[in-house]
Design a protein around this nucleic acid. Structure first.
Lengths: 233, 233
DNA sequence: CCGCATCCGTTTCGATACTG
DNA sequence: CAGTATCGAAACGGATGCGG
């Protein structure tokens, strides 16, 4: 039984032959945060049938996107991780997320806000056209959790680092705080980023608070669209 | 019957609720080249069931991605086009295409090389990290067709134009030729871009030929990876 | 021809239960 | 913990029909 394919000479359709099936890209999204056990993936993908997850994982392993490794551990038998090829899906996940951001409504009770995806959500919100060449580190201390955002400095003229590769996020709180910091909630950040609340309003109302040097705060405000009101992608 | 949804508070999964179904992103890909009639879309999507196309189009119209317009024309009743929201899917299609490029094999007889997708394929091949700040225009006169590639100049320091937005392609041959020109085949360009053939080899063998100023040719070579051998995304 | 709608066999998905 | 097994529901694929 030959796997079904769009069968066109086109990069996008070839890609969708590999990652276009249901759930596949969400598995990638979760694996982008690091290796996971089967159960971790299942818990991070509520609503997905167990057999389907197993099936997808074997497909993705066959496609060379995912690597399965048996480990010696009392409470874990195997770890799934992305291969180098699988890591190349990060720009896809980010692009998809950027598109979806304006459609994202506030979480309801039946919409789990999974801890694992907070960093991805933050990375998605950053306005890449506002990245400063010099780079910056920002701690986001939100009600829903902590995220360290690192914008890698541009390496000078010549070959430029793609914008997406310059945005890095981590849920681990380093020993030392970043010089720039923002506190509040994901919802407030999202409202501002989506232009439904101005940055000034968010700060005045206390929904968000920032600290750090003047210049860094200015960069932060640009990165999350504090100055805009109109909705933008 | 509530449309099925991943139902997670996550931008990527929200996006996939809208564009994750089979064929949807390929419809977008074809509409990115401009408005199309129903029949045009069907011809550009071989293998897709006719009723499914109709169904997808109505879904996408309901989601605000596609606009349907009745027109007065002897041999066309309606035109489908992307809305502003739909246009925001271009980065997604390009990111997906970039991922799929290394998996793309040479076209076989049963894999139609559809004229419409040639410009998208070219845009996908361009190495965005090699975009010159000054911009450039290149005519690609390939066996499979003509494409004018335009790299929009960077607007100076400050807010930067996202790399993807700076790459524009058009199948229309303007009145005047671009100062830089490349001739050959899509296959040769793809081999070089994928690092399976060096640029020098392609030029020596005559598989590709370039003309233009020294500097422009150097830019062209960087854009399509003429200097590399190893496979890269 | 253009723009779908109907019908129908096949595949995939979703939910839950079950096993080593 | 890490999957299989099962089964009904939904989606898909292909062909064909049909009014404007």
């Amino acid at each position: 039984m030959p796997k079904r394919s769009y069968n066109q000479f086109c990069p996008a359709s070839r890609a969708l032959d590999l990652i276009g099936e249901r759930w596949t890209l969400l598995i990638v999204r979760n694996l982008l945060r690091g290796p996971r056990r089967y159960t971790d993936l299942r818990d991070g993908l509520p609503g997905m049938a167990s057999n389907l997850l197993a099936h997808r994982l074997s497909e993705m392993e066959a496609a060379g996107l995912v690597h399965r490794e048996e480990i010696a551990d009392p409470n874990a038998r195997a770890l799934y991780s992305l291969t180098e090829r699988g890591e190349e899906l990060r720009p896809v996940v980010v692009a998809v997320g950027r598109f979806g951001l304006p459609y994202l409504d506030m979480p309801t009770d039946d919409q789990p806000m999974i801890d694992e995806m907070l960093p991805e959500a933050i990375a998605t919100m950053v306005l890449i056209e506002e990245l400063p060449d010099s780079g910056i580190e920002i701690d986001l201390d939100l009600d829903e959790g902590f995220v360290r955002l690192i914008v890698v400095p541009q390496a000078g003229p010549g070959r430029r680092t793609p914008a997406l590769a310059r945005v890095q996020v981590s849920p681990d709180r380093p020993a030392t705080n970043a010089p720039t910091r923002i506190t509040g909630s994901v919802a407030a950040l999202l409202w501002v980023r989506r232009g439904e609340l101005s940055g000034a309003e968010a700060l005045d109302s206390g929904a968000l608070a920032v600290e750090g040097g003047r210049g860094d705060i200015a960069v932060l405000k640009r990165l999350f669209g504090f100055s805009r009101r109109s909705r933008q992608g």
